[in-house]
Amino acid sequence: MISRWTVVVDRGNLAETEVLHDELPSGSDLSDCEVLLRVSRVGLTANNVTYGVIGDVLGYWNFFPAGGSGQGVVPVWGFADVVDSTVDALPTGTRVYGYLPMASHFVARARLTSSGFVDTADHRAELPAVYNSYLVTSSDPAYDANSEDLQVLYRPLFLTSFLLADQLVDNDFHGARTVVISSASSKTAFGTAQCLRGQGVRLVGLTSPRNVEFTKGLGLYDTVLPYDAAVDVEPSVYLDFSGSADVRSALHSRLGAELKKDVSIGLTHKTPSQDSRSEFFFAPDQLRKRTADWGSDGLAQRFGEAWRGFTAQAAGWVAVVQHHGPDELVEVWQAVLAGKANPDTADVISF
């Protein structure tokens, strides 16, 4: 029997993990339009912690259902290869990029698109389309075989950065001319800062004292401050990538009416914010808006230009650390979950 493995977490305590093994489906087990994918290479960042923290709120646990009660599979982004298929256009060996489980394999029900396929499995029917779409690398103009590490680490994060920055520009920064960004050393945060450079706003990065020098070295923020420093009182938007209630309260207390908008994006502090003063940013909403405004090709063109500008610099900011197999995947998950990951390194896991 050929087995597959899946890393599951306790949905009530994300630090509790287990590696489960079961039988791998064979070609005869696949229904029409199904493909069996072997997960090859994924990135793991604080963004994946966010998926777990708000998994019940935004349905992230529903993409890759776990068998055990109270257990869940955390989604990751990366590359996978077709190892068995009932779809002629997706033969064995086809490499795809997309939303994957923390697992060695998974089965998708493929509806072909011009760039790849959409997983139309019943349990994914009501979930956001951006997470159900898979790009075939041979049809993806942004794919570069020599930079897969950058793609699994940054591409999903940078899409959020791109859309968040675009939403701010689209709303004229809600009347503010300063953008305060917490967890400023995190990848999605500094991707947002990179998108906002040259947009006529002052960028203030907040980070832990140990990350101040790294964050300054990025050259993306006009000012970098430790969390306990006081920001200038001026019309501001707060982009919260940390989920820290203390930081939020301090900013509201200091800025008062000058805080024009408070937006929550990530949750590196592991506790979802229930503060009514903050508005949650959900990237698929802005993606749908811009697809309607610009069309799919127009959106792809704008994102592609921003992505190329970002990757031209990103390789010099962070060193990639390579890991292998489910046990090392669990080790990285525990480190990122505990906030022990270094801002100047990034973790890629191959299987």
Rank of each mutant, 00 (worst) to 15 (best):
V87C: 10
S104K: 09
T120A: 08
S139P: 03
L127Y: 13
V130L: 07
A121F: 05
R111E: 14
S85T: 14
L100W: 14
D88K: 08
A121Y: 05
T137Y: 07
V82M: 05
D88H: 08
H105R: 00
D119E: 02
R111H: 07
A103C: 15
L135W: 08
D81T: 02
V74Q: 03
T86G: 02
A129D: 07
S139G: 01
L135F: 13
T92A: 05
S104F: 06
T94I: 10
F117C: 10
V82Y: 07
G78V: 02
E126V: 14
A125V: 03
G98D: 06
N132Q: 13
S115L: 09
L112I: 14
G78T: 10
L90N: 04
D84L: 14
R109I: 01
Y134C: 09
P101I: 13
V107M: 13
G78Q: 11
Y97T: 04
T113R: 12
S104I: 05
P91V: 12
T94M: 02
Y97P: 03
H105D: 02
G78W: 11
Y97E: 01
A129Q: 13
T113P: 10
G93F: 00
A125Y: 06
V130M: 13
R95H: 11
S114T: 08
V136Q: 06
S104H: 10
H105F: 00
R124M: 13
S114N: 09
A129I: 14
F79C: 04
V73F: 06
L135V: 11
F79H: 01
P128A: 10
W77R: 13
H123Q: 14
F79K: 01
L127C: 06
D119C: 10
A129C: 08
A108N: 02
G93M: 00
V118Y: 05
F106G: 09
Y97S: 01
A103L: 15
V136C: 14
T113V: 11
S138T: 13
D119M: 03
D84R: 05
P75L: 02
G78K: 11
G98Q: 10
G72R: 15
V73H: 11
L127T: 02
Y97M: 09
A110W: 15
D84I: 00
T113G: 13
G93N: 06
G72M: 06
T94N: 07
V96M: 12
F106V: 04
A110M: 06
V96F: 12
D84M: 15
H105T: 01
P75I: 07
